[in-house]
Amino acid sequence: MLSIILILFTSFFFTGIILRTKSITSGRKGPGILQPVSDVKRLFRKGSVYSETTSIIFRIAPVIGFSSVLMACLVVPFGSYKGIVSFDGDFIFFAYILALGKFFSIISAMDTGSSFEGMGASREALYSMFAEPAFFILIGSFALLTGKTSFYEIFSSLHLGSSITYMLGGMAAFVLIMIAMIENSRMPVDDPKTHLELTMIHEVMILDNSGFDLGLILTAGYLKFAMYGAIIADFFIGGLSLVWAVPLFLFIQFLFAVMVGLIESFMARFRMNHNPQFILALSSVSFLIFLGVLLVLEKFV
């Protein structure tokens, strides 16, 4: 229960903090931290325009995308406190329900018959496919380390052994940040602020969405960020008591948001054809974590 409240809470500020960081580093005054929330609120009150080419798929896709992120949030725990539900293999459910949302966002982009949106959809499908193995190897390694197979059990028994797990946690955080950047279509892979349709991935897919639907898609994006932030935080707050865990959680989320802002300020987007290599490299980092776990468990003897 705690986790979903905290995720919802942080999602209010997350994108605002990213924008604020970006404006500070570029020397602008920039919008307030709650600006993204007011954007969504305004969108929710608007009417919408639907393309004549589109079908039912286009109308249902944002709803399914949003609901899938919400469902994924349900299984994310808070350190040693369960999420709404926790069961063996919940991370499989987590990854697959997010994939369902992506499936619909891809076909909804294709539904418009626009070549720009097709381009974005094709890229999104490819990149998310490459990002999946990294996530599964990562969680698999920690399942091997702890002997548990659910998010909650993994995180609550992660730091009972040695402090070397914090190092593995650090590497895991790196992989998860990158996965979050890919899933949220952020900087090294995709540039949300680009002005040319040909260079967009996610933004170009939602060109035709408007009003309530666009608001839903944006909200799902905010939630997704906070959700990945929560998983990253979970790697560190496992054994702590609530008094320490909540501030640390918020701090990590804050740090994550600032980091995203900094990456976006100081890095250029990769060339499109370099993206798959980059994403595949993530799988090898995950594999390194796996080897690290093998070292810890002394399997190499």
Partner: peptide, 8 residues
């Protein structure tokens, strides 16, 4: 107002 228009 829910309207329809050509794809962008």
């Amino acid at each position: 107002i829910i309207s329809s228009a050509p794809t962008w």
